[in-house]
Amino acid sequence: MIDLGISKLALIGVVALIVIGPEKLPRVARMAGTLLGRAQRYINDVKAEVSKEIELDELRKMQKDVQEAANNVEQSVAQSWNDTSEELRTIGQDVTTSDATSSEVFVSTEQLARKAKDFRRKKLTKTSAIPSWYKNRHGQRQHIVSGSARMARHRAKSRPPISFF
């Protein structure tokens, strides 16, 4: 860059005063200032454009990397899904071709229904064995009430304004 000190600027000013003259010097200085301002704005605009382009390139690279990672994950999930479904098909074929009966390998639907019914009956006896008056006395809630409903129940009722007329 050009190294301009105070002494060099003073020398340029004296030469400009002699060459241009004292009448035209203020007008030329104003024009030089405006041109210098325009040049600085133009340089700043170019710098801003270059930085935006660099950021856009970085964002494009980042988007490309994320897209590749998403594609890799999608392919790995699809591959594992295909492998699992293939294994399940082979297991299903092995079970159908094997000589083992379904009573040895699988639980029948009747047994599952009976177990579910027994479970419901046991659960019912557990919950209904304690009388409701005992539950009420010891603070076990029968009905769940939300916090806002509880606040509304205990909120003081507003009275209508008393009119003088």
Rank of each mutant, 00 (worst) to 15 (best):
G5T: 14
I6G: 08
S7K: 06
K8Y: 13
L9D: 00
L9N: 09
A10G: 06
L11H: 14
I12V: 11
I12Q: 07
G13E: 06
A16R: 13
A16M: 14
L17P: 01
I18E: 07
V19W: 08
I20R: 13
I20W: 09
I20P: 00
G21C: 03
G21T: 13
P22C: 03
P22Q: 03
K24N: 02
L25I: 13
R27E: 10
V28G: 00
A29K: 13
A29T: 11
M31D: 01
G33E: 01
T34D: 01
G37L: 07
R38G: 09
R38Y: 06
A39H: 01
Q40Y: 15
Q40L: 09
Y42Q: 05
Y42D: 03
N44C: 00
E49N: 13
E49L: 13
S51Q: 11
S51T: 05
K52S: 10
I54Y: 10
E55L: 14
D57L: 02
D57F: 00
E58L: 15
L59H: 12
R60N: 09
R60K: 09
K61P: 00
K61T: 04
M62F: 04
K64D: 08
Q67F: 03
Q67N: 12
E68W: 04
E68K: 05
A70M: 06
N72W: 02
V73Q: 15
V73L: 10
E74F: 01
Q75K: 09
A78K: 02
S85R: 15
S85A: 03
E86V: 14
E87W: 03
L88P: 02
R89V: 03
T90L: 04
I91F: 11
I91Y: 11
G92Q: 04
G92F: 04
Q93T: 07
S98D: 01
S98C: 04
S98N: 02
A100W: 06
F106G: 05
S108I: 02
S108A: 02
T109E: 11
Q111S: 08
L112Y: 01
K115L: 10
K117C: 06
D118R: 07
R120H: 08
R121M: 07
K122W: 10
K122H: 03
K123W: 03
L124E: 07
T127M: 11
S128C: 13
S132W: 08
W133S: 15
N136K: 15
H138L: 05
G139Q: 08
R141L: 11
Q142G: 14
S146V: 04
G147Q: 07
G147D: 08
R150Q: 14
R150Y: 14
R150G: 14
A152M: 04
R153H: 12
H154M: 05
A156N: 08
K157R: 11
P160F: 14
P160R: 09
P161Y: 07
P161V: 15
I162R: 15
S163L: 14
F164C: 01
